[in-house]
Amino acid sequence: MSIADIRTDYTQASLSEQDTDADPMAQFARWFEEALVAQIREPNAMGVSTVSADGRPSSRILLVKDFDQRGFTWFTNYQSRKGEQLAIHPHASLLFHWLELERQIRIEGRVEKVSAAESDAYFHSRPLKSRLSAIASAQSSPVADRATLEARYAQAEAQYGDQPPRPEHWGGYRLQPDYVEFWQGRASRLHDRIVYTRAPDGAWQRQRLQP
Rank of each mutant, 00 (worst) to 15 (best):
D192E: 05
D201G: 14
G202C: 10
I3Q: 00
K129P: 03
D54N: 03
G83W: 07
A147D: 10
K129Q: 14
E150V: 11
Q207K: 00
L62M: 15
G161H: 14
A22T: 05
Y10E: 12
S16N: 01
Q39L: 01
Y179A: 09
D66C: 10
L62T: 15
Q184W: 09
S93M: 08
E17F: 09
S14A: 07
R174G: 01
G47L: 12
K82R: 04
R60V: 08
P211Q: 04
G83D: 03
N77S: 11
F182L: 13
A158P: 12
Y122L: 01
L62G: 13
F123G: 00
Q163K: 08
H124D: 02
R106F: 08
D21M: 11
G109A: 03
Q69M: 07
R198V: 04
F123R: 05
H124T: 01
S58L: 15
T73V: 07
H91L: 11
Q210F: 07
A13S: 11
H124Y: 02
R208I: 08
T11E: 05
D162K: 03
Y179G: 15
A53E: 04
Q85D: 02
K113H: 02
L190A: 06
W170G: 13
V48P: 05
Y179H: 04
R70C: 00
W204L: 15
S93W: 15
E42I: 07
Q205D: 10
L209Y: 09
S188M: 06
A144Y: 05
F72Y: 00
S133Q: 11
D23K: 13
A187Q: 07
R146Q: 07
Q85T: 06
M46T: 02
Q155A: 09
Q159S: 02
A116S: 03
I3W: 01
E100L: 02
F123A: 00
A134R: 15
T11C: 14
A116W: 12
I61P: 11
L62C: 13
D19K: 12
P142Y: 00
A116K: 04
I40H: 05
L15W: 03
L128N: 10
Y78K: 07
E168R: 14
Q79K: 10
R174K: 12
E150A: 10
H124R: 09
R186E: 05
L94R: 15
R70W: 15
A117C: 03
E108K: 13
S119H: 06
Q104C: 09
R106Q: 11
I135A: 09
Q85Y: 03
L99V: 13
K129Y: 14
R30W: 08
A147Q: 14
D9T: 01
A45H: 01
S59W: 14
R208H: 10
Q205N: 14
P211W: 05
